[in-house]
Amino acid sequence: MELPPQDGQAYETVEPASGPGRKERGRADLRRTAERYLSEPAEGVTTRHAFSFAGHYDPRNTSFGALLACNEETLAPGAGYEAHRHSETEIVTWVLSGALAHRDDAGHAGVLRPGTVQVQSTGSGVTHTERNVGGAAEPVRFVQMWLQPDAYGAAPGLGLRTVPDGEGLHLLASGRDADADRAPRLRRGDAALWLVRAPAWMPLPDLPAAPFRYAHVVAGSVGYRTVPGPQGGGRSAGPGDSVRITGDAFADPTAGPDGVELLLWEMHTPVRYG
């Protein structure tokens, strides 16, 4: 898994309404899972990419906010990624089903299962492997997200948090000092990742506000209005779908008939260059 290209526009901008002094409009940009670029980087491995990645490059789709990648990965029994190196990237992994074996040259090794988030700060450089756990009869499915850090050159680090069952808003990772005792630390001070769960037909809990928010549905479905008020169009997102949100878009989100579980990035600045 190589770093995605870093050329071109880094993020979707918030479009201002016409006329002087008018409030900027938000946008809820729905991307269906079938629209993702599909690749097979190794035998038994399939990946759907939300952004430009490795050999796939779209200059109009390189990142959103500080998020560089959001990949849906499936590793067949016996399959996985051989040793490869990363640096200066926050790699966050959430397993949907099965078990993912991780090992790196910084001394970390373990098996990641549903309900536990892993945050790997690659820092000055780390080599790791990711494989379907040995002896598995079923594929492992997981979402892996890459975030640009704002601190560089530090030694690699790894954090884990197991999330309790139940509805609500659960903090998975954060770069804020105030959250240091609640979740693994991100090396980006103005970003946080949340897990959101809601039962059938119920409104989602109050979501954190931010200039850039990225919602990725992992189970169930969510309905919402594109912007607040009667002018907002109704939309629905299902498993694998994502919504890139700016401003006050993504209004009145409500779980569908099977409830919903989604990952939500809260980001207050976009990718920085130079």
Rank of each mutant, 00 (worst) to 15 (best):
P203A: 03
P203W: 06
P203V: 02
L204W: 01
L204K: 01
L204A: 01
L204C: 01
L204S: 02
L204N: 02
D206P: 08
D206R: 13
L207I: 01
L207V: 03
L207A: 00
L207Q: 00
P208Q: 05
P208F: 07
P208A: 02
A209N: 12
A209V: 15
A209C: 12
A209Q: 14
A210Q: 09
A210V: 13
P211I: 08
P211L: 10
P211Y: 11
F212R: 00
F212L: 03
F212P: 08
F212Y: 15
F212C: 04
F212S: 01
R213A: 06
R213G: 04
A215Y: 03
V217I: 14
V217D: 02
A219N: 08
A219Y: 02
G220K: 05
S221Q: 08
S221D: 13
S221Y: 10
V222G: 08
V222H: 07
V222K: 00
V222W: 13
G223R: 05
Y224W: 15
Y224I: 04
R225G: 08
R225T: 10
T226P: 06
T226Y: 04
T226W: 09
V227W: 00
V227T: 12
P228H: 03
P228R: 00
P228M: 06
P228Q: 00
P228Y: 06
G229H: 05
G229F: 13
G229K: 04
G229V: 07
G229Y: 13
G229N: 11
P230I: 09
P230A: 09
Q231W: 13
Q231F: 14
G232T: 05
G232I: 08
G232N: 02
G233N: 09
G234N: 02
G234S: 10
G234V: 11
R235V: 14
R235P: 10
R235G: 12
S236G: 08
S236Y: 06
S236E: 15
A237H: 06
G238C: 11
G238W: 10
G238Y: 09
G238E: 15
G238K: 00
P239V: 13
P239G: 06
P239F: 00
P239H: 01
P239I: 06
G240M: 08
G240F: 12
G240I: 10
D241W: 12
D241Q: 03
D241E: 10
V243E: 04
R244C: 12
R244I: 09
T246N: 13
T246A: 03
T246R: 02
T246H: 02
T246D: 07
G247C: 10
D248T: 15
D248C: 09
D248S: 15
A249W: 12
A249T: 09
F250E: 09
F250R: 00
F250W: 09
A251W: 12
A251E: 08
A251K: 04
P253G: 00
P253C: 06
T254E: 07
A255P: 15
A255G: 09
G256H: 01
G256P: 07
P257C: 06
P257A: 12
P257I: 10
